[in-house]
Design a protein around this nucleic acid. Sequence first.
DNA 1: CTGTTAGCGCATTCAG
DNA 2: CTGAATGCGCTAACAG
Lengths: 352, 352
Amino acid sequence: MAKQTHPTLLDIAKIAKVAPMTVSRVINESGYVSAEVRQRVRRAIDKLEYHPNALARSLKSQRTHVVGILLPDIKNPFSGELAGSIQQVLLERGYSAFLCTTEQSVQREQAGLSAFFDHRVAGIVVATLETKAGDEALERFTRRGMPIVSVGREPGLAVVDRVTANHWRGAFDAVEHLISLGHKRIAYIGASALHARRLRRFQGFCDALHEHGLDVRDEWIAGPAGDSGPGYSTLADGYAGMQRLLDLSRRPTAIFARNDFTAMGALSAARDRGLDIPGDIAIVGFDNVPLSAFTSPPLTTVEQPTAEQGRRAAQMLLERIEGEVEGEHREVSFDCRLIVRASTQTPAEQPE
Amino acid sequence: MAKQTHPTLLDIAKIAKVAPMTVSRVINESGYVSAEVRQRVRRAIDKLEYHPNALARSLKSQRTHVVGILLPDIKNPFSGELAGSIQQVLLERGYSAFLCTTEQSVQREQAGLSAFFDHRVAGIVVATLETKAGDEALERFTRRGMPIVSVGREPGLAVVDRVTANHWRGAFDAVEHLISLGHKRIAYIGASALHARRLRRFQGFCDALHEHGLDVRDEWIAGPAGDSGPGYSTLADGYAGMQRLLDLSRRPTAIFARNDFTAMGALSAARDRGLDIPGDIAIVGFDNVPLSAFTSPPLTTVEQPTAEQGRRAAQMLLERIEGEVEGEHREVSFDCRLIVRASTQTPAEQPE
DNA sequence: CTGTTAGCGCATTCAG
DNA sequence: CTGAATGCGCTAACAG
């Protein structure tokens, strides 16, 4: 059998009959090494399949090439796409990703952040909803000089770079679209009134109604059943929420759903009651997940540039890490875009 | 501002007026330390917000508490759920996750595996499709004594523990279900004949047809447009594949789709042509993603226990890492389960 | 061009 | 019960 243990610089040095430092020079292509010696060293490296120990390197150099990514919930397709796009940029620039998903558990959040810190990650991308404990931890990290970029968060923590999309505007546009179609009884599905307040897309919903003199009625705000907290809203939440709304004596005529999955759940519930979409009730989603174009009817929704946000966040983080940018904390906001499909307009009326 | 640099054992030792070793003992709760000294040390630790450097620890102890997870494609909901369930087990046992998604790029796969290796991860979970380069790398790692568990892979690499679900059987059952409904012209959507061969669910499809004396016709195997490779098959692939099948002079009457998203794309294409599901054409998916219960009609599909596979893989890996298990490489296979919904049977005929 | 020395932060070993 | 010495693998900073 081959060696059980990893070969070290010293092992290579012995075989090549040089000093460890020389091997180091060959590997890092730093300093001068004669062609002949380089040959010998290279051969030894290949022979033992030597790979430098990143831990020792980092300990010595006091820097790692690892970035922590803190995500709310990996089932959320937004998280998935974000993680993918961040990773792509990281790999291109020689960094790796340490991942933690919190799944709405403060303990997991803390454990993840601790792991990041203990492993001395070079920086962190946070995409979780804010929590008290989490924000405190992040602030401690910032004091220690750790670069942090947040994605899709509220402005709360002013100490980090921020990347967002303008959810408020996207929601506002979507609701105005419904109003322009003549709807006056517009409901929200996806979070209880309590938690919704923290979501910009909910604020956009409310503000659009107010601006057009319409009421935000509490009974037209349908959160998840147990109201467990500010988590991602699901298909089942949308289905249940729609059922409740349809049981009201005074029904809404249009639904603004917190995200596309919630919208699809709502769609399904309406269909099961024999209602026609958009004839009897119009539905708007949010996020423009690929599937939203394939439902029946296809879903009107608000697109947010997820991958762009991930890439931008990664770039901004790397700029901080590599010291290319210092000082003032930056903010980047992407626009959302309303995509009108058949769930709010009958095909005949559709513009294109 | 606070220190720019991380405090070390020595900093704590100075403040508490003890030797570094004593601080180490307090932190690891190893050896004897008097209550009084422990107090002093604890206070110093809190004051400086000291966190041990995991890099230095690992260098010294020659082991990390980090596990590498190699995934094909994070957009695939299977990957997401897998990552989540693995992570849960890891966190419970004090491990963290290093993540890499390959996105069908051999380079990314190599880069990821190298990063795992360089950082001396304690073990690896692989859920990617096999590639020549990848398997070679994994084999090198195994020779170095690195524990590796594969999920959902072919038996190929005999040197690692394996966790799978019986996709072959799941597919076989699904196709038999279609046959029992009277279908004789059954098509496959989701991979070209070339790549499909490597998928057990495709083999199950073929074997079920053969067993019942039916042909596997090449024109009834619809892969993705560009046929880029053995990647995850998408909604768009399903849509396009269905369109091609519907253009044939001799149409299939039933579709077995590689996964639920592909099935939904196919569903959508059929609907757009004004066809009735399952009246004109029956459709079966695979994976039982949450959405499959909410389509119209709800999708008959094959469930595989994704989270269980992830948890089991993580447990098996940790058993190897902690030396609780040695020797013989193990194999665990979970059963798949056919879930019959309305996309293959009209509600009236449905058993329950 | 190459080698020597020293130390990153921690924990194992052995002495007090 | 506590401390001192030593080295994990690597690389700056100096010699030669």
